[in-house]
Amino acid sequence: MDVTDLRIALFSGNYNYVRDGANQALNRLVGYLLKQGAKVRIYSPTVAEPALPPMGDVIGIPAVAIPGRSEYRFPLMIPPAVKRDIARFAPNIFHVASPDILGHRAITFARKNDQPVIASVHTRFETYPRYYGLAFLEPTALAILRRFYRRCDAIFAPSESMAQLLREQRMNYDVGIWTRGIDREIFHPSRRDLEWRRAHGIADGVPVIGFVGRLVMEKGLDVFSDTIDHLARRGVAHKVLVVGDGPARDWFEKRLPSAIFAGFQAGPDLGRAVASMDMLFNPSVTETFGNVTLEAMAAGLPVVAAIATGSQSLVSDGVSGRLIRPGAIEAFTDALAHYCEDEGARRAAGDAGCEASLRYGWDAVNQALVDGYLRIVRQRAAGGHRPAPSPVP
Results as ranks from 00 to 15, higher is better:
216 V>L: 07
219 K>R: 07
192 R>T: 14
165 L>K: 06
188 H>V: 15
188 H>R: 15
187 F>Y: 03
226 D>L: 14
285 V>E: 08
263 G>N: 01
208 V>D: 05
256 L>H: 00
153 D>R: 07
230 H>G: 06
231 L>Q: 04
185 E>W: 03
167 R>F: 09
283 P>I: 12
165 L>D: 04
172 N>F: 02
251 W>C: 05
245 D>V: 15
204 D>C: 11
160 E>G: 01
178 W>E: 00
160 E>S: 12
185 E>T: 15
219 K>T: 11
188 H>P: 04
211 F>T: 08
241 L>A: 09
219 K>Y: 03
282 N>A: 13
166 L>K: 06
152 C>T: 14
270 L>Q: 02
199 A>V: 14
162 M>V: 02
191 R>G: 09
258 S>R: 13
217 M>W: 07
186 I>E: 00
152 C>V: 13
238 H>A: 13
260 I>F: 03
222 D>C: 05
221 L>R: 07
205 G>D: 12
210 G>D: 00
287 E>R: 08
220 G>E: 02
274 V>G: 01
290 G>C: 07
206 V>M: 14
276 S>V: 15
271 G>S: 10
181 G>V: 08
170 R>T: 15
197 R>E: 10
227 T>S: 03
190 S>Q: 08
199 A>E: 04
254 K>I: 09
180 R>C: 11
278 D>L: 12
194 L>M: 11
227 T>D: 01
270 L>E: 03
210 G>I: 10
200 H>Y: 08
160 E>I: 14
258 S>F: 07
289 F>V: 00
242 V>G: 02
210 G>H: 05
223 V>E: 00
174 D>P: 05
272 R>W: 12
188 H>F: 08
288 T>A: 09
174 D>L: 09
159 S>D: 04
227 T>G: 01
207 P>T: 11
219 K>W: 02
159 S>H: 04
221 L>V: 13
166 L>I: 01
231 L>F: 01
254 K>L: 10
217 M>I: 15
200 H>R: 15
241 L>I: 13
236 V>N: 02
217 M>H: 07
154 A>P: 03
205 G>P: 02
236 V>G: 02
167 R>D: 05
208 V>T: 14
217 M>P: 08
222 D>T: 14
212 V>K: 04
241 L>K: 07
172 N>I: 00
176 G>F: 00
241 L>Q: 05
232 A>R: 13
174 D>V: 14
234 R>D: 03
186 I>Q: 03
184 R>K: 11
173 Y>Q: 09
195 E>G: 11
174 D>Y: 06
227 T>F: 03
263 G>I: 10
173 Y>K: 12
